[in-house]
Write a protein that binds this DNA or RNA. Structure first.
Length: 237
RNA sequence: UGACGCGAGCGGG
């Protein structure tokens, strides 16, 4: 079983998802019975591909085969639900998570937060987020990105403050979300302020993504000269 | 016990 599963995971690591899936099919036909790790590996291939439907089928199938999902299974399948916007499925799986007592796992919780935040269900996202244990940078990142995507700059900025109050330091990804939100809302001054604060207060070097955001922000609002000036600053690469 | 899982933004195409 370990040998077969090793084959599958090797294919997954090389991004040879089709080969991994073929290998799994062959294992089911003529190899030993797949164990939890084999199933998790194959579910992960679908989840990474954004193929939510086959991922869910596998998830059902493994349970039919009498295997109980573990925290690895849950994080993979929740990611799959997130990709295809299967919020209802996600809620059902959320219940299963609670039944299994795995809701305290930080990775599982982050995938749940991500699922809810990206689908605009912020109340549920916050409930998961407030549930006991530690939030980390990734948890906040999901929530802020969710707010940013909904065009809710105020809430995104509020989250930024809240996370800093808790002693979590924002990283470059967080600022990308913030800048993007400002861009969509046409809040040029605010965006510029945060862009400056990155290097001034947070010790984060803006990367190409941030410059792209700023150019986008400036030119959308008609500050074409400023946008061109910024372009000059960026090192050709 | 672990061979499996672990979040993200803009624009363009």
């Amino acid at each position: 079983v370990v040998a077969w599963t090793g084959m599958i995971t090797a294919y997954v690591q090389c991004k040879e998802y089709l080969l991994a899936q073929k290998c799994f099919a062959k294992m089911q036909e003529e190899g030993p019975k797949p164990n939890i790790v084999s199933w998790n590996a194959i579910i992960a291939t679908y989840a990474r591909h954004g193929d939510g439907v086959p991922a869910l089928e596998c998830f059902q199938n493994m349970q039919i085969n009498g295997l109980k999902p573990n925290k690895v299974t849950f994080s993979a399948i929740l990611k799959a639900c997130c990709c295809i916007g299967a919020i209802e499925q996600g809620r059902l799986i959320h219940e299963q998570v609670i039944e299994s007592g795995l809701q305290s796992d930080i990775v599982v919780r982050n995938t749940l937060v991500d699922l809810y935040a990206r689908s605009g269900n912020f109340e549920e996202a916050h409930v998961v987020c407030n549930g006991l244990a530690s939030r980390n940078l990734l948890t906040w990142g999901s929530i802020i990105a969710g707010h940013a995507q909904c065009g809710n700059v105020k809430l995104a900025l509020q989250c930024l403050e809240n996370m800093q109050c808790e002693g979590v330091k924002p990283d470059g990804v967080i600022f990308s979300s913030i800048l993007a939100a400002c861009s969509h809302a046409g809040l040029v001054d605010l965006g510029v302020t945060y862009f400056k604060s990155m290097s001034d207060y947070h010790g984060i070097l803006p990367d190409i993504c941030h410059y792209t955001c700023m150019v986008d922000l400036l030119s959308r609002s008609g500050y074409l000269n400023e946008a061109e000036n910024l372009l000059q600053i960026i090192q050709p690469d």
